[in-house]
Design a protein around this nucleic acid. Sequence first.
DNA 1: CGTTGTGAACTCATTCACAGCT
DNA 2: AGCTGTGAATGAGTTCACAACG
Lengths: 223, 223
Amino acid sequence: MDSVPTERSQRLSRAAAQRLSLYLRCVADWPTDGEAVSSGRIAEAVGVSDAQVRRDLAALGHLGQRGVGYDARELATAIRTALGIDRPWRAVLVGVGNLGRALLKYQGFRAQGFEIVGLFDSDPAKVGQEVEGLPVEPVSVLGVRVSALGAELGVLTVPGDTAHAVAETLVGSGVRGILNFAPVVLKLPRRVRLVTVDLAIQLEQLAFQIQHGDAAARATDEE
Amino acid sequence: MDSVPTERSQRLSRAAAQRLSLYLRCVADWPTDGEAVSSGRIAEAVGVSDAQVRRDLAALGHLGQRGVGYDARELATAIRTALGIDRPWRAVLVGVGNLGRALLKYQGFRAQGFEIVGLFDSDPAKVGQEVEGLPVEPVSVLGVRVSALGAELGVLTVPGDTAHAVAETLVGSGVRGILNFAPVVLKLPRRVRLVTVDLAIQLEQLAFQIQHGDAAARATDEE
DNA sequence: CGTTGTGAACTCATTCACAGCT
DNA sequence: AGCTGTGAATGAGTTCACAACG
């Protein structure tokens, strides 16, 4: 196996990890005609400074060549490794509403190695339906099924008032991380990682930025 | 009372504005039985430090009372003003897929003063349908309709490959901000504010956090 | 008392600028 | 020539700790 010179790393901040995702996307999309790619090109595509790109990439190890740039393929695999998506992740999705369906259809997940292996809903009318090739199971069996399916991640697309209960079931059945779309602040044991995407807050951010002619020319966020 | 010495403000960071949204939510939900609310209570509910809460709120003006706390009602309106959601915002939504429908159903928007006033899609099969009480119009008329509807915001829930074209139409018809769900980096003129929510990136963040047993103690322990 | 508001210290993140390699 | 990697400088954001006040 390839040596792992990758133990250069200073710790990556969350913000840096988000940028890595963006770098990965454009590097992966680009025609890798053997040409090296420079920090400046990536910077322009993603909308950050070139120094920022170099700083971020330097944290992954020495994979640039001075005077030349970065090898696109090598860079892509290094970023995947750093993000922890160099191997598949299995996830269950709870709440097969419109948002849940949107996520299921979404290309980006499977492409990056995330696979939804189970669907759950509390609505008896939905249970038994097949959505995107997967049967919807009742939440009552969520606990046992998660372990059986070997899922490490849970995606929560349920209404806010049921989110906490479902989250606790997920935690109890051993998931290591939860992606939460319910507009609530979940309190979980420390060992379980949590990423919350709050749609209402994002619109408020937009209003805020407009209100204060904010000099933030940035996207994504973020935190 | 006159009060309103509200021109205290240091500039609010984006991060601070996000937290304000969270504070607002819990303050608005709480039974305002006339009791004052303390920074510590808010901090615990939202999962940040009490000093952080005080810092954020101090930026809105002197609205706390030493030894007592903050008046819930007063606080809520101050936050709304600071975020720019003390008045209604009209938005159009482009892309009536599952994600678009999910947003339309989502309670949180209208509650905070955001109103979707127009629906657009490029799929002829969807045009003419009525979704959540609004007719779906063809994207070809997007430009003229935005002005007619008086929409200031655009919500983009279209596939990545069409996002840029739609965004430019929106910009051309005068929207002041775009909430983008397409997994692309949009380049817009500076006067138009942009918030991008990239779902794939959020899952990658989760994988990243798990991979590096990250000390991001977002959640408070219980157990 | 209890709780806010805030200087000061501190940690984290970004940009600058240039040495060093190709 | 071009481009990376990084020390140093700067800036942004957070916590500390305590004076001030009802």
